[in-house]
Amino acid sequence: MKFDTAYSLSLDDKLSIYDVRDLNFDETTDFDSDKDSFLCPNDECRAAFDTSNALSTFNAKNVNYLRTPHFKNKTSTRHIEGCRYTSSHKTATDENDDEREDNFPSEFVLTRRQYERKTPVVSTEGNVPYDPLKVPSNRSSVSHSPNDSTPDKTSVFAHPVECFVSNIDDKDKLKSMPLKIGDHTASYWTFFKKIEYLQDNKGLIYWGKIKEIKDYTSSFRIDFEKKVWLDKKPYSVNVYLSKKLIENYRKRKAFLEQIKAAVDSERALYCFFYGVTPKLQQVPSKRNPEQTFGVFSANIENLDHLIIREAPGVE
């Protein structure tokens, strides 16, 4: 079976798989999920075994993943009787569990979670001592549930986006699941707004199919396929990613790898973003600078709140 949360031995805390992905690509932190050990998030179950009783990670380091990231039991992973993470607890839906995210966070926190690495004390045998009865302290500024269930909150944008995309065929579920961002609470279905309807409401997660990505070497412009209609006229929509924004981004290498691959990709790609609402602007014409034309445009302010990805079935 797959699950979203596990205990990180190196960080002495419970992380979602999206936290792990975020840390893997973060150039400001010394973290590598391949060098960490991830254990059962159930405190009682974890206390019953040593640190070799680890889980595996799926899509923890793949920049452009197609199937939902998750933790998973290895064939050697053991659990105590009654632990809900044992493979014997499989349900009928688990056969296709790689394609769907069922752990919906109820809040997307705009302040990035801070991870405090514990300082390991190495024994004379070269091993890291482990107190099996120790419960993770959850030092994070983003409060996580004290039990072993999936955290109610996340600061990683990919998590709510994956919930929306992988469940796009279940509108009733998306309409019933609540999501809070800042002071605004709505259903997932309401919060995710197609780019052509961006005038309907501000402060939402806008998304749309990418028509083209303009590569200006050190900056990029993402043009959307759908247009916005205003006063019976169609207007193009785009978002701009500045050189300064990209250069200062903590996951710069991973982002450049992703967007450069997207520029040349022949696959259908979609862009999801939060934090800015494109507004109608008058732009000088290249052919005749004295003339202008209207376009809905915005400068992205936080790359943590923008995702370019495949999203099969959304349209």
Score class of each variant (00 low, 15 high):
residue 202 K to M: 09
residue 199 Q to F: 01
residue 149 S to H: 13
residue 210 I to G: 02
residue 165 V to W: 07
residue 160 P to L: 11
residue 200 D to E: 13
residue 173 K to Q: 08
residue 183 D to I: 12
residue 142 V to H: 04
residue 190 T to E: 04
residue 164 F to R: 00
residue 177 M to S: 14
residue 131 D to E: 09
residue 144 H to S: 14
residue 133 L to Q: 10
residue 204 L to M: 14
residue 151 P to I: 00
residue 132 P to W: 02
residue 202 K to T: 08
residue 187 S to V: 01
residue 147 N to A: 14
residue 157 F to V: 03
residue 171 K to I: 09
residue 193 K to F: 06
residue 137 S to L: 13
residue 123 S to M: 10
residue 178 P to K: 01
residue 167 N to D: 02
residue 176 S to P: 05
residue 136 P to I: 00
residue 139 R to N: 14
residue 134 K to S: 10
residue 134 K to H: 07
residue 165 V to M: 03
residue 157 F to Y: 11
residue 175 K to F: 04
residue 205 I to V: 13
residue 185 T to S: 06
residue 194 K to Y: 08
residue 133 L to A: 12
residue 137 S to H: 12
residue 175 K to W: 06
residue 192 F to S: 02
residue 171 K to F: 10
residue 192 F to C: 03
residue 211 K to R: 11
residue 163 C to A: 10
residue 189 W to D: 04
residue 126 G to P: 04
residue 150 T to M: 03
residue 162 E to P: 03
residue 167 N to W: 00
residue 200 D to I: 05
residue 160 P to N: 04
residue 186 A to E: 07
residue 149 S to L: 15
residue 144 H to G: 10
residue 179 L to W: 01
residue 190 T to M: 01
residue 155 S to V: 12
residue 151 P to L: 02
residue 212 E to T: 13
residue 211 K to G: 14
residue 134 K to Y: 06
residue 207 W to T: 05
residue 183 D to F: 15
residue 206 Y to R: 01
residue 139 R to G: 15
residue 174 L to Q: 01
residue 143 S to Q: 12
residue 160 P to A: 07
residue 153 K to T: 12
residue 159 H to S: 11
residue 171 K to T: 06
residue 179 L to Y: 00
residue 178 P to A: 08
residue 176 S to T: 07
residue 176 S to M: 07
residue 186 A to I: 12
residue 141 S to V: 15
residue 136 P to Y: 06
residue 133 L to F: 10
residue 175 K to Q: 07
residue 142 V to F: 04
residue 146 P to V: 11
residue 160 P to D: 02
residue 204 L to S: 04
residue 138 N to T: 10
residue 124 T to M: 08
residue 161 V to F: 05
residue 160 P to Q: 08
residue 162 E to V: 13
residue 170 D to R: 10
residue 196 E to L: 03
residue 182 G to C: 03
